[in-house]
Design a protein around this nucleic acid. Sequence first.
DNA 1: CATTGTGAAGTACTTCACAGCA
DNA 2: TGCTGTGAAGTACTTCACAATG
Lengths: 256, 256
Amino acid sequence: MATGRTHRPATRSRGIPEATVARLPLYLRALTGLSERSVPTVSSEELAAAAGVNSAKLRKDFSYLGSYGTRGVGYDVEYLVYQISRELGLTQDWPIVMVGIGNLGAALANYGGFASRGFRVAALIDADPAMTGKSVAGMAVQHADDLEKIIDDNGVSIGVIATPAGAAQQVCDRLVAAGVTSILNFAPTVLSVPDGVDVRKVDLSIELQILAFHEQRKAGEGQDDTAEDAGTETPAAAAKPARKGPDGDVPAVMQA
Amino acid sequence: MATGRTHRPATRSRGIPEATVARLPLYLRALTGLSERSVPTVSSEELAAAAGVNSAKLRKDFSYLGSYGTRGVGYDVEYLVYQISRELGLTQDWPIVMVGIGNLGAALANYGGFASRGFRVAALIDADPAMTGKSVAGMAVQHADDLEKIIDDNGVSIGVIATPAGAAQQVCDRLVAAGVTSILNFAPTVLSVPDGVDVRKVDLSIELQILAFHEQRKAGEGQDDTAEDAGTETPAAAAKPARKGPDGDVPAVMQA
DNA sequence: CATTGTGAAGTACTTCACAGCA
DNA sequence: TGCTGTGAAGTACTTCACAATG
């Protein structure tokens, strides 16, 4: 069952580019900060700086939402907060369930950012009977047996998976069968879901590995690649087929 | 100080596209699974399925690393594991520090994925004196006063920030000043760093907001956008300037 | 007249489709 | 023959640069 694609099916909802959608929360956070400091208006330049993007990109992003600025002046902070919130669907309340209340799950449950702005943790669910009834972040943990009922009773459409990798697909299947159509996955696994279900993944070790890649490049900056790590310990596996990689033995002169 | 860009400066190290780098850890995980099951070779089609991408993309990705496959056969699993590990810099050991040992920090410290594959938690650091000396994930938490010395003594170049938002920039500045050049940021803030320092951010509430956006679109599928939520509760702020958005009153006919 | 909003140009990434090779 | 490796075509995103305008 459920052999569908894992990523969102690129259906670019209502013409707003995915890349833009991914930045809206960033703008919203920056705007919320300004709002709290009672700043009435902000220019694209200022807001872009606060959000860590460049101003042309920000203006282009906003242009997909509509013409919400005033030429010569800037954007009305409160108004923009509302428009972006509405666009993101945060003017309504999203009940979510969290499955897997281990270290990470508990940390997420306690994390304030979840509860704020449109999201409400409707239930914490764990498969371990020893967890059932325990209080985490002020809520009683419920047993996984009741997962379907909990989702149905609360009208949940967003689920967070923080189980071990081995349990994630099974939990995912049950969530989807029970009606969940958006999943935030913290388990280090590729989830298979049917079309129409969105999965986003947050993977701590992947992020670190990407950093390590760039870190390594910094260390070897300018020098040729060979002899930096190649001779350190060449595992048995490394000698199998004939190497044809760009950095096998010839110093890479191309692409300085 | 440090008004530099936050994102990596797009310097596409050694010609490997950033998007490809971001997928290498995914391939590596899938390959590790195959390796554990003693699968000797794998085709691009099979591996792509396991990693949740399409096979043309995978082959293109691998083509940036070199010609590591065998036509008509596929890829040697062990060999590819080694090549990708090497490319990502995981054949060396990266000491990391984690700053901010609250709920999330503790969960991250306990998370196995960190310790595995090339990374070693060299120190847990917290600013709260009450935390100092406490054991988390089998390590004694150290006080933030010693941050610079810890980084120097351990040759740390990668730091993980899991502090509250308010402390993140300050911690970041100290990490950078002490020699850290890659940062994984869990605090919901945009960090400013000088050029040459990489920042990646993991933001739980942003991911949820992106899901909410798509979820909202699913709910209103096909219907016109007006009157779904517009009349529910219009906050005072929403009435400020003249609305010119594409969904103000006229059904958006453009951009089907 | 400062600042938005946006066509047009530029860049990055993805997918196709098939030649090349084991 | 089956599968990789890759030019070429297609798509998505970013940036430029300036006309429009409150």
